[in-house]
Amino acid sequence: MAAGTLYTYPENWRAFKAQIAAQYSGARLKVASSAPAFTFGQTNRTPAFLNNFPLGKVPAFQGDDGFCLFESNAIAHYLSNEALRGSSPQAQSQVLQWVSFADAEIIPPASAWVFPTLGIMQFNKQATEQAKEEVKKVLSVLNHHLNTRTFLVGERVSLADISVACSMIWLYKQVLEPSFRQPFPNVTRWFQTCVNQPQFKTVLGEVKLCDKMAQFDP
Amino acid sequence: MAAGTLYTYPENWRAFKAQIAAQYSGARLKVASSAPAFTFGQTNRTPAFLNNFPLGKVPAFQGDDGFCLFESNAIAHYLSNEALRGSSPQAQSQVLQWVSFADAEIIPPASAWVFPTLGIMQFNKQATEQAKEEVKKVLSVLNHHLNTRTFLVGERVSLADISVACSMIWLYKQVLEPSFRQPFPNVTRWFQTCVNQPQFKTVLGEVKLCDKMAQFDP
């Protein structure tokens, strides 16, 4: 059973994937996200950290046995169990399909839309409208897939649900107001099923769906 | 043993990953990349295709048993064998680490640098200079890792090598001229070891490293 330390800054949705996976697998995970254990911007610039994690990025994982991993999907995979990874090559590849889908199709437009509402990026009306259209495409693909399914792969939670749900947390908390998410009921049902699982709730706390689409925060 | 059809346009580096994996695993793979089997921009817009592959993107895989997959990493994983995927959870997560590294750290700057030289996108001097710096960082991380290793994970070729090498083909063919790649000899040695493996060569043909950095093609 994997055991070790996850270095990250607090509330990092990329780190959430590994933390939730550990809740399901029982892997003993210490989270180093605040001083003195870890200070983002300092610890990850030290030679000792860079020697283990040459990109200097978080999340980064160091096993009690010294085994080091970077890239959030790799860490979440390592801290998972067979149920989460997929128990057959077919299921494993379907899990990987949705993990890739989250990174390739959800994160870019979700960030382009949400970041300006958090005040951490310049607002650009055209970019935001384009991002909204991309998010609608993502939601309709997921809504179709989830029309006949409770979870994305097989009959129970897998890394596919953990990865896709974590990539959508900020969308649901910040901008997917009721009228926007109304055409995609299967996705909202699936998302709430996931975040209300005890293993998700232990890590995420209460995830409140937004009532009003956040606008650009000057 | 997986068997089926890979839909793609010709010379698609994302499809190369699956094709090379199949060469190692022995999976029987038909490639549909030209008419009448497949016409990019038409076939992938038909209702039949979109029903199986809702994003309408390629590469897309359909098994002889009807099993459908999209996302190139998932397809390559499905067509692999245990040797390529990693034979332990540790090795599997290291493979996934480098597969994610290719998508997250290599593809963005490689596209920003190479696309304008292929006439795919407008040239932007600042974006190109920034991309060059990011590619240097990627090359130095790989050069350090490969200082004591022949391959990225374990002692033999894995999906890590296949994914990272395929993500760098355009860089080496188009812009990594001798003076640029000189500080990273371990990476060039590793890259040439990979592309000269018979399983790579069957799919890629001869991969010639560029002598002169291609400039913007107006």
């Binding site: 983002f40 958090l118 951490i120 970019a127 | 010709p10 030209s34 921009g41």
Partner: peptide, 29 residues
């Protein structure tokens, strides 16, 4: 967390690159 997000490197332009690549290969084919 918001302050940390600024450091996240996200490929915001990915959809634009995907479209450009798609157009290019559709034209070739």
């Amino acid at each position: 967390a918001v302050d940390y997000f600024v450091q996240e490197k996200i490929w915001f332009d990915k959809p634009r690159y995907d479209d450009a690549e798609r157009h290019f290969y559709e034209r070739i084919n």
